[in-house]
Write a protein that binds this DNA or RNA. Structure first.
Lengths: 346, 346
DNA sequence: CGTGAGTGCTTGAACGTTCAAGCTCTCCGG
DNA sequence: CCGGAGAGCTTGAACGTTCAAGCACTCACG
């Protein structure tokens, strides 16, 4: 049943071993070191030599052996991304897009991404990766305040960049979105559409949830609009939020616009509104926050505050590599603005 | 603004370089090779020596240098996972959980996972990774029929395992879920709850979509239940499906149970039913397919055919490592059964 | 008591790069 | 015509492991 020798799986490369740097050197009639220099765009060779080397590389289809390079140069050309180990929850749609963006951004700089996660002890897995020198640096995400991973890496002298913010006591590279401005921009957008009566639906768990609510309040204040506390729904479970939205929209003077701190909760609000017979985008406007694929899951498509993952990933990788290459820490963080991604819901 | 020397980031390790295998050997009063043998659980040393070596390893906090190991042994202890490069869509909730499961399963065998994706040429990125010997093998996903990635890897003689099925012409390791049995089991479950009148909501794009519908039909046939073609909704857009479900449930003799080939579409069906004032789980039952976090996004929670990602990941990693270690290909694939994850919707 | 087969351990070499130091020209200023 | 600098290239060593051989000693067997 099982078992078939793998030998017969290599029909083409019969005996012909992979070529190494010496083969290239021999063919180009130069020394190994010169090949190495060309490969790493160093100086110290003529234009003519360079051309000969490149021809040989091409002809032999040579690519340097990653492990050999790493051993000598002490650079792995790999970055580690710590994937949240928690039970997968609502904003995971976001994480997947983020990983994809990270991988692409790293590839732009010739690096690969090692994705890892922890089970139990969060730091253990970092310690191991640092000990075996498996990566050159780390990308962390989902942090506000004092992050034990950041503290450990800092103390261990390992470069890293953080998506989110930490306690400003340590100098470290971080990139974050401007959640306050994002939520505030949703209000601007709705005001621009003529809305005057608002409600908010969001989580209450993470620091950025608080910031989004704060942004909502700021946005209203900017336009001199007041909002009652009863119009602010902060829910843990989708059930509870669903019920609260029903109650909210059942009121005599119901709001015409609902700003949400999450696409998923916005979807819940859309459903609740629909079940009351309200037309989304006409009787009531709803905006979300994320812009992942959940945005497409409502009908009509959600208008959402999009988190620009590509920008974020690019900055994170750039920060991390700068730290690796130059040994310097970008002590000021980077705040990335969000964008409104208009759908039919507002 | 920017720029702070990283020097002062290493307060603890002043000069004290990391210890290598020779340090351990010296401390345990044995040779490098003996340390190496202990490390790799080989034979050729006494129990007493082994103990001394372990003490030394502990004392020096020694961990072997990954790159050095790789160079000599030609094993990277890394597996590559090719993340679908397409625009992120509905079943991405699934992919994220899958990655997490893969990472964990690989870790159980002392391996790390390199996640990569392509932009444009799908094979290019494989060729590079193979050329630099960046991984020992690959995990592919999302394939039915003739997969160019599988073809390439096979021809290059690189071990890999496939989530999905390919043309049976090539002997290769694959693991897949039994979609037909899965959809069929949803019908069984609903029949067990007393339902007699069914409808189906699903996609039509991928091979497994077809299989799920097939399973639905088979499940009905098993119970001698007939279904009209008008009760089978195959949609591309959520909008269209939403409308079709409204029409379906608006019929005089409406079905009491809706089986769906996707949690997302099941969620759409739930919303549509709610907007007609139907009580989910009572007036109409709905089941999904996936069991990712989308399952939690409806109210009540969706009853769904869960894809056991942990099992799948474990089998994939095991297959791939077997191929790497023993050079043998498991020529028969593995079909993993799904499980019904009951929620309140059916 | 010589021989063959373990058992337990050591040693030099190798894996495929890059580092650090050197070597050989040429060219230019004094 | 000597000295110094630089351009262009080479060479031995090193990175930290594992491989492949070998060595010394013990023990059983004929």
């Amino acid at each position: 049943m099982a078992g078939k020798q793998a030998e017969d799986r290599e029909p083409t490369q019969a005996g012909k071993a992979r070529s190494d740097i010496n083969d290239v050197a021999r063919m180009a009639r130069v020394s190994r070191q010169t090949v190495s220099n060309v490969l790493n765009n160093r100086t110290g060779y003529s234009e003519e030599t360079r051309a000969r080397v490149l021809v040989a590389i091409e002809a032999l289809d040579y690519q340097p052996h990653r492990a050999a390079r790493s051993l000598r140069s002490q650079r792995t050309m790999q970055l580690g991304y710590h994937m949240p180990g928690e039970q997968l929850a609502a904003d995971n749609a976001f994480v997947l897009g983020f990983i994809q963006a990270l991988v692409r951004a790293a590839a732009d700089h010739g690096h690969h991404v090692l994705v890892f996660t922890d089970q139990g002890d969060e730091l253990e897995v970092f310690r191991e990766l640092v000990a075996i020198r498996g990566v050159d640096g780390f990308i962390l995400s989902g942090s506000r305040g004092d992050d034990p991973r950041a503290r450990y890496l800092h103390q261990a002298g390992v470069p890293f960049a953080l998506f989110g913010r930490t306690a400003p006591s340590l100098p470290q590279s971080w990139v974050d979105i401007d959640s306050v401005a994002g939520a505030s921009s949703a209000v601007d957008y709705l005001v621009g559409k003529g809305h005057e009566s608002f409600a908010y639906v969001g989580y209450d768990a993470k620091p950025w949830d608080v910031e989004r609510l704060e942004g909502f309040r700021k946005g209203l204040a900017d336009h001199g609009i007041r909002v009652g506390e009863r119009s602010i729904i902060l829910g843990d479970t989708l059930d509870a939020v669903h019920g609260d939205v029903l109650r909210l929209l059942g009121r005599k003077r119901r709001p015409t616009a609902i700003v949400s701190g999450s696409d998923v909760l916005a979807a819940v609000a859309v459903n609740a509104a629909k079940s009351l017979g309200l037309r989304i985008g006409q009787d009531v406007a709803v905006t979300g926050f994320d812009g992942g694929f959940v945005q497409q899951m409502t009908e009509p498509v959600l208008t959402s505050v999009r988190i620009p993952v590509d920008r974020i990933a690019a900055e994170l990788i750039a920060c991390c590599l700068r730290e690796i290459d130059e040994g310097t820490v970008q002590s000021a963080g980077i705040l990335i603005p969000t964008e409104i991604a208009p759908g039919g819901s507002a």
